[in-house]
Design a protein around this nucleic acid. Structure first.
Lengths: 200, 200
DNA sequence: TGACGCCTAGACCGTATGGTCTAGACCACT
DNA sequence: AGTGGTCTAGACCATACGGTCTAGGCGTCA
């Protein structure tokens, strides 16, 4: 972590960028809008960031900082069963969505918008989602070792599916501006990999 | 179907729009780019469309025309089991994705990009995805009636989950420019609602 | 106190954008 | 032949965009 200290102005711009990019997307947000929201002049923007793309990438980094924190907070709690830890992670994430008015996931949003035209973003977002899946694979492996799972698939693969499912539910949540698809999808996913389905 | 006949020029613009919007998104595509791709002058664009938003909405309609065709073609084949018909639908959709270079789903793309700032688009895309889910609910209901399902949930709810799962896989496919998440997700989903998982 | 580096400040620039406007080609109908 | 509607054609406009540039405030260290 040999990062420079990140001045207050830069942090304000990143914070504003997080909100604005989530709501309006990359091309929907002008540099000026970030400046206005962060109460900063243009000079500061181009002092701290090479260009708009660099800015957005750093916003993604800032977003991932929060994700890391949520992952660490949830997955390390060894008093809970592995699958419960995963659930805890997504509950934290959901709380973040609530705070933003249920606009879904920044990674999904920017990924959809930019990955068709920008390899840089496609690679970055894919890496981020893959990282999350990688972290979730560990408790999934634990769960399998404990015999909690009723499916035999590689935990890494199961984790990929989980993240994909979540992103799909997050899109629906964004369209509805409503959280309901999120826990519904989690329930569906966990039932799929654990309990034998019951047709009662 | 009391639609006006849609001139060749208008159709060229819609076709170009489909490709361009899928690749670059709404804000990433200028009207001029559509004009160039369709070899049409600006006058034609604003003759056939009120504005850029109207154009994009009509591109979505054109996209849905293809979806309807795929739904009709797949779901009506009563010689196949209901779940096989659903699989057939997504196989057709996948072929469309292949044709476009695995850029995912236009509905997911525009939904993510625009639904934060435009209620019109949010509502429209949600309606489209809901319509697809509605169509898929029928064969799911049939499957349940036949005893093919091992879950008791409402077919409409299961169909919602399916569409969400698919959109999540389509995003991953787009990021990777690779189809592999699509059949993987379908396998996961169908296993979840049918066969008892096997830990062999 | 002078010099240097970091950061703020905002005027300014070239370009591309969405959208308008007028002119005219083409076709059907009378 | 004349007329009206549909569609093509592209010059044109105001604005907003991403990005550059110079100037100045401010703290630090010699």
């Amino acid at each position: 972590m040999d990062k420079e200290p990140t001045t207050a102005t830069k942090q304000r711009m990143l914070d504003a960028g997080l909100t604005l990019l989530l709501e309006q997307g990359y091309h929907g947000v002008g540099v000026q809008a970030v400046l206005d929201a962060a109460q900063a002049p243009k000079g500061s923007f181009y002092h701290h960031f090479n260009d708009k793309e660099d800015f957005a990438l750093q916003v993604v980094d800032a977003y991932m900082t929060g994700v890391h924190a949520a992952l660490d907070a949830s997955l390390s709690d060894s008093s809970r069963a592995p699958l419960d830890r995963i659930r805890g992670f997504f509950e934290l994430v959901s709380q973040g969505y609530e705070h933003d008015g249920y606009l879904g996931c920044l990674l999904g949003g920017l990924g959809q918008e930019l990955s068709g035209a920008s390899d840089v973003f496609a690679t970055k977002i894919d890496w981020c989602l893959g990282y999350i899946a990688g972290r979730l694979a560990e408790p999934l492996g634990e769960a399998r070792a404990r015999g909690d799972l009723t499916v035999a698939e590689d935990p890494a693969v199961l984790a990929q599916r989980l993240v994909e499912c979540w992103e799909g539910a997050a899109l629906h949540s964004r369209l509805l501006r409503d959280p309901s698809p999120l826990p519904a999808m989690l329930d569906f996913y966990f039932r799929a990999i654990t309990r034998v389905p019951d047709d009662g």
